[in-house]
Design a protein around this nucleic acid. Structure first.
Lengths: 159, 159
DNA sequence: GATGAAACAACCACGGC
DNA sequence: GCCGTGGTTGTTTCATC
C-alpha cells in the first residue's frame, strides 16, 4: 500500500501539483532523486492519475450551479447508457453521477444564470422522451476537499 | 474576457497541467515568452486558481462512493453553518453541496466499502440532533468533465 | 532504496520590434 | 502586445554506497 512518504507526497501534490521535485524532497527530508523515484512510482501504480489546472467557474461565465436529479423510464441499460452519453456531452454539464435510489442520475451543471438554467432544463432535458421526472436544486455553495487522504484498509482503526 | 488563445490555454492546462511552457507555445503556434505571459495573465485574473494532482479513489482504499442528502431542523443559519463545518471535516467526505429544494445538503462521500458507508451514516450523521432526514444514494458511476470551457456572456449564442 | 554530481532542458527577465 | 536571447534554475541520469 502507501507508506508515510507516499501519503505525504500525495497530500502535497493534491494541494499543489506545481511543487518542484526539489521542494518536495526538501519538505520530506529526502534526496531529490529519491523523491523523483517515489513520485514516478505513484504514477506507475495508478495512485496519481493526472494533473489538472483548476479554473474559476464564475470567470468562465458560469455564475450559477445546480444539481438536477433525473428519473428515467424505463430505467434499463440502453436507456440509461444513451441518456448518460447525451447528458455528458452537453456544455452546461460539468459532472454526472449515476446513482441508486429514487433517481437514476444527478447532473451537476454550471450555467450563466438562472435564466440559462431554466432554458437548459426546458430545451434540453425535458425534451427527451425517456425522462420521467426532473428535480432541480440550486447550489448555494460547493465545498470540495483539497486533499483526499488514503483510508486504512482495516476498518477497526477508521478513526 | 477570454480570447481564442486564452480559451485554448485553459483547455490544454485543464487536461494536463504539466505541459511545459514550450509545448503549450508550440501547440498554439506562438513564442514561449508570449505563452508565458498569457498563462501568467490567466493566473493574475483568477481564471486559473490552482494546480492539483488527481488521485484514484480506489487506490486510496475508497472503493464505494455515495451521495447523502440531508435535511436539517431548523434550517436556519447557525444550524446550517455548524453542520457544514462538521461534515466538511469528516474524513469520509470529499465534497459538500449546500442546496435549495427538498434537502439542505448533499454530501459526497468516498468510503472503504458498504459496511463503512453504513457505519458512517449511523455513527456520524444520524447522531447529530439537528438532522431531520437522511437519504443515501450509492454512486454507480461518476463522470467528470476533463475540460470546462468558457460560456459566452451572450445567451443568444448559447449553442 | 538512498545519495551526490554532472549533462541536459526548461524557465523567465529583459530589450527590441 | 509579441518575439528572441542569455543567465538562472530545476530535472534527470548514472555511478556509488
Amino acid at each position: 500500500m502507501l507508506d508515510e512518504l507516499d501519503s505525504a507526497l500525495v497530500a502535497l501534490l493534491q494541494r499543489n501539483a506545481r511543487h518542484t521535485n526539489r521542494d518536495l524532497a526538501r519538505a520530506l527530508g529526502i534526496a531529490p532523486s529519491t523523491c523523483l523515484e517515489r513520485v514516478r512510482s505513484l504514477h506507475a501504480r495508478g495512485v496519481i492519475t493526472g494533473h489538472h489546472a483548476e479554473v474559476s467557474l464564475p470567470m468562465l461565465g458560469r455564475r450559477v450551479q445546480a444539481l438536477v436529479a433525473v428519473r428515467l423510464r424505463p430505467p434499463n441499460r440502453p436507456v440509461i447508457e444513451s441518456f448518460q452519453e447525451f447528458v455528458t456531452q452537453l456544455p452546461e454539464t460539468i459532472s454526472v453521477f449515476v446513482v441508486s435510489g429514487a433517481e437514476d442520475f444527478l447532473i451537476h451543471v454550471a450555467v450563466r444564470d438562472t435564466e440559462h438554467l431554466h432554458a437548459f432544463i426546458l430545451d434540453h432535458l425535458t425534451q427527451r422522451r425517456e425522462i420521467a421526472d426532473v428535480r432541480t436544486s440550486v447550489v448555494f455553495q460547493h465545498m470540495q476537499k483539497a486533499v483526499v487522504e488514503p483510508l486504512s484498509p482495516d476498518p477497526s482503526d477508521a478513526r
